[in-house]
């Protein structure tokens, strides 16, 4: 079967070379993202080691149930994303669009819940730098915890929003039939990104929500 030339960018010799280049390119990008979030996790690790009691107390101000539900939502969205990649490779146009839409929906609910949570913190004066209040002697260290909480979940939510935007574009392209094989590679690449954002949350959930829950 002759390869459709319009699917192949000029600088590549064949589609397999192009696919591998895109895949490796995304993985290299994700390696940079690991360090980007990693710098935050490094800071988190230092302060958690230094101020364990205060951070445990501050962590109890987050809702574990909320966090767990959000985790479940995001894991499910990774599943629908994996299914989208699966259908993209098979060339199922409608099923691809459906899976992408489900992924967007789950992701959007996640971001919505995140905003609700932030709003609660705002009302309880738990936003650092904006009239932060915390009962007990460790307000200073608790503010540090919440600074990291907002930085980590904020950068994560930003990545979610970018991901939702990318998936929305892909849904449109899928409906127009522009992602039929061999032009399905963008779905693969977007999938890698989405799963990565999921993995970040897999770590954020225990780091932020599950510190020292057994002590009342």
């Amino acid at each position: 079967m002759p390869e459709p030339t319009h699917a192949l960018a000029e600088q590549f010799d064949d589609l397999e070379q192009q696919r591998q280049a895109s895949t490796i390119g995304m993985w290299v990008f994700l390696a940079t993202e690991v360090i980007f979030f990693g710098a935050l996790i490094t800071g988190y690790t230092e302060y958690r080691a230094s101020y364990y009691q205060a951070w445990a107390a501050a962590s109890k101000h987050l809702s574990v149930v909320f966090g767990a539900i959000m985790t479940i939502l995001l894991l499910s969205s990774s599943f629908t994303m994996a299914m989208a990649v699966h259908f993209a490779r098979l060339g199922g146009r409608k099923r691809l669009a459906l899976c992408l839409l489900l992924t967007i929906l789950l992701g959007a609910v996640f971001v919505g819940m995140k905003f609700m949570e932030w709003h609660d913190h705002y009302q309880r004066h738990e936003v650092p730098g904006m009239g932060f209040e915390f009962p007990g002697p460790n307000a200073r260290e608790a503010q540090l915890f919440f600074s990291f909480y907002f930085a980590m979940t904020g950068f994560h939510a930003l990545h979610m929003i970018v991901g939702i935007g990318i998936l929305a574009v892909l849904t449109g392209l899928a409906l127009l039939g522009r992602l039929a094989p061999p032009r399905h590679v963008p779905v693969d690449i977007a999938g890698l990104y989405w799963h990565f954002v999921d993995i970040v949350w897999i770590f954020l959930f225990p780091l932020l929500y599950l510190v020292d829950l057994h002590h009342k």
Binding site: I24, W27, V28, L30, A31, T32, E33, V34, I35, G38, I41, T42
Partner: peptide, 10 residues
């Protein structure tokens, strides 16, 4: 290799 490199550097 690249998937591992990011984690190793972290």
């Amino acid at each position: 290799l690249f998937a591992g490199a990011g984690l190793l550097w972290l």
